[in-house]
Design a protein around this nucleic acid. Structure first.
Lengths: 180, 180
DNA sequence: ACATTTATGTCAGCCATATTGACATATCTC
DNA sequence: GAGATATGTCAATATGGCTGACATAAATGT
C-alpha cells in the first residue's frame, strides 16, 4: 500500500487513537472491512484455481452444512433468485460437487447433497478460514472464542438472529450425527 | 427463512453447540458471513436510494477519511484497476460528492476531496454502521470495544496489518486536526 | 376427477462491478 | 529533449446479480 500523501506534519503525534466517544467508529468500520476482505480472500484463491467464484462457495458451503436441503431453503438463506442460483448450481452439479435427489415424501423437491468431492472441497475451504480464526483467537487470549461468537452474533440484525442461530444449531446437530 | 427440511428427529437435543475443538469453525464462519451481510446492508439501503452501490461507498469512505489523497493511493487501498475506479469516481464527481484538485507540488496529480455534500453522505453512512457496532458492543459489555478492535485486527492478514493500522492512525490524526 | 397451487427449472435480456490491453495527455525528472 | 509518471479513456470480456415470462411435474383441495 503506497503511502498516502497527507500533510507530513501530521505524522508525529503518538497519541492513543481513541476517537471521540460519540463519533463514527471509523476504526471498527475499516477493521471489519479489511478483516472480511482477507477472510474471504483465503477462499477466493483456492476457488479461482478451479474456476469457481464466491457464489459457488456459498452454495457448496450451505449444502454441505445441511445435506438434503431443498432448493427453496437455499434461496431463502442466500437471498438470491432461483435464476441466479441456477447457473452456479448447475456448474456445481456438472462438475460433480453436488448431487440432486427427489424428495422421498414430495417428489417435486430436488434435495441437495454434497458428493464426496464436494465435501472435500467444502472442508478444505472451511479449514482455510478456520485457520485464520484460530490464529486470531489465539492472539486474543483464551476466552476469546466465546467473546467473538457473542460479538459476531450481536452484529447480526436482531430480527434475523434467531434464524441464524437456529441454522447453526441445526447444522451442528446434523454433523454430530455423522462424526468425523 | 423457511424451515430446512432435515430429519425431524434431530431437532430435540438442547446440547451446547460447541463443535469438536479441532474441526472447522463453521459457526464462526457463518456468523461472520451474516454479520458482514447485515453490516453492509445498512449502507446498501441508503445508497440504493440515490442510485449508488458499494463501489461508490468505498470510494467516498476513503476519500472522506483521507481528504486530498491521490488516485493512485485509492487504487492501492481498494485493490482495483483504474478502469474500474473510473466510472464510479466520475459519477461521484458528476453528482457533486467529490471534487478533484491538481496537486500543489505535482500538477499531474488529481487530489480527491469530499464536498460538503460528500462529507454529509459519508457521515450518514458511517453513522448507520456505527449504530450497529454500538448496539452490539453494548450487548457485549464494557471492555468489548477494545476486544473487538483486537479481534478484528487479528483477523487481518499479518502482512497487511501494519498498513491498515497506519491507515487508520493517519486518518484519525487528520480528523483530530479538524474536530467536529 | 379436475382445478389449482407448489417446487423447480429455463429462456431472454438487463445492470453493476470487476477484469485486461491499448492508447492519449499532461507533467515531472534527468 | 527524452523518458518516466499520474491520470484518463476506449473496447471487449467475465461474473453474479436482477426481472419477467413461461414450462413441467407433482401435490393438494373441493
Amino acid at each position: 500500500m503506497a503511502d498516502i500523501n497527507v500533510s507530513t506534519a501530521a505524522s508525529r503525534l503518538p497519541e492513543p487513537e481513541t476517537e471521540r466517544p460519540g463519533g463514527p467508529a471509523f476504526d471498527l468500520i475499516e477493521l471489519l472491512f479489511f478483516a472480511y476482505r482477507d477472510f474471504i480472500g483465503d477462499a477466493d484463491e483456492l476457488l479461482a484455481k478451479i474456476g469457481f467464484g464466491r457464489a459457488h462457495h456459498r452454495v457448496l458451503h450451505f449444502v454441505n452444512r445441511h445435506p438434503g436441503m431443498r432448493v427453496a431453503d437455499l434461496l431463502d438463506i442466500l437471498k438470491i433468485t432461483k435464476q441466479s442460483l441456477g447457473r452456479v448450481l448447475r456448474e456445481l452439479v456438472d462438475d460433480g460437487y453436488i448431487t440432486q435427489r427427489a424428495g422421498p415424501a414430495d417428489r417435486r423437491q430436488r434435495l441437495l447433497y454434497p458428493t464426496a468431492k464436494g465435501e472435500a472441497l467444502a472442508l478444505e475451504l472451511a479449514n482455510l478460514q478456520t485457520r485464520r480464526f484460530v490464529r486470531a483467537l489465539h492472539e486474543c487470549g483464551p476466552a476469546s472464542r466465546e467473546a467473538a461468537r457473542r460479538f459476531l452474533t450481536a452484529m447480526i440484525e436482531p430480527s434475523a438472529r434467531g434464524e441464524v442461530e437456529a441454522l447453526i444449531a441445526r447444522a451442528d446437530q446434523l454433523s454430530r450425527g455423522r462424526p468425523r
